[in-house]
Design a protein around this nucleic acid. Sequence first.
RNA 1: GUGGGCGUAGCUCAGGUGGCUAGAGCUCCGGAUUGUGGUUCCGGUUGUCGUGGGUUCGAGUCCCACCGUCCACCCCA
Length: 425
Amino acid sequence: MSIQSIRGMNDILPTQTPVWQSVENTLRSVLESYGYQEIRMPLLEATELFSRSIGEVTDIVEKEMFTFIDRNGDSLTLRPEGTASCVRAGIEHGLLYNQIQRLWYGGPMFRHEKPQQGRYRQFHQMGAETYGLAGPDIDVEMIAMTARLWRQLGLTDLQLQINSLGSTAARAAYRDQLVNYFSSHYNELDEDSQRRLQTNPLRILDSKNPNMQSLIDNAPLLLDHLDDESQTHFATLKTWLDELGIPYQVNPRLVRGLDYYNRTVFEWVTQQLGAQGTVCAGGRYDSLVEQIGGRPTPAMGFAIGLERLVLLLLHHQLQIPDKTPHAYLIMAGPGTLQQGLRLAESLRDALPHLRLLTHCGGGNFKSQFKRADKSGALVALVLGEEEMAQHQVTLKYLRQEHPQLRVGLAEVVDYLKPLLQLSNE
RNA sequence: GUGGGCGUAGCUCAGGUGGCUAGAGCUCCGGAUUGUGGUUCCGGUUGUCGUGGGUUCGAGUCCCACCGUCCACCCCA
């Protein structure tokens, strides 16, 4: 067996890259249309950054990070998510103090999980983070922005779920109540939930075990224990979502896995990706900046799982941009190669958007035409000895009923121009 | 980390209960057609049968272990 890629780390092959490029371009243009600026962070950070921000006892930190000791003896970790790095960079470069920032980033993230549909060890996210804004207005903006993303991409079957976790203090108080409640029913908890009681009690509410449902239904509700300010914040958010005509579902069981969230949390989910239905998720994290060593700064953000988005788009067989070549240059006979390469370069000068493949590797006309056809090109440009003697090129249309014709070298451009408009960019 | 399905040619897959040099379609290459692809016809190339061990006169087939992959649990984007 020859060397293979690392488990859960996939190559994205040429047949797939057009979808990825299309998704990335769409996301970028929407983010820019809301005035968000790109920030790029390293893939590698001090391990402590993640253990302090994501939470010591979360699964991510406890067993899913790619962590190693470098040559200096420092513990480094491949980023399992983007928010912590973004906050670190913001603090480090003075981007956050007394300022308002709207940022976005993209790139690979790493988690040592067992791969399955929509979940990989190296996966890609695009995310946005905002700083210095505490009100529900920015929450609405970010949710509306994600709604626009799906519209741009042509996705119609994503559902928005929202919830409020309340203030950090209210959340902690609720957590205590929940622990008390479930502890008094300890024997009715399944094995997973008994463990969650120690690690993340809010997660018990999310259990998929049907035997747990009645117990969960009777548990105290997070929304009943919100502090007044969070309640108002959440109510306003809902009103404004209504006004923008963005449908949502309040899901009182929605808790995000990472410790730093408070108040607004949201998820966009689909039924079409099997078990990994969350395509986009985020929320407020008003205390994280301070926790990592900055001045108290309200913050809100979300991340999108690109693999899941791409899977969804493939599911829907949405139109993706065509990258097949417009023309394929066939050259045969003494001296035609030099002449042909010159012609190809001049055509690329004249038509910057032209996708022109020049034949390499020799061969007779027949084999060259075969390659031309296989490339998907719309026309074959033929430069043989006869053409060369008359300073001409033969144009043969490979995809449409159209007789082939001979044109002068200088006129080729005029015949190629219409082809550029014909193919969808 | 736990559980289940699956590993045969570049791709998609056949190969009852063990039995000769392991097959098909597609792809690829060449020819029919020495300056014309895509259709048709003819011919050709392609394999440590995931890896290692075991049972057997004999293993692609049975047993064990490992690896990979897919799906689910857990968790999460």
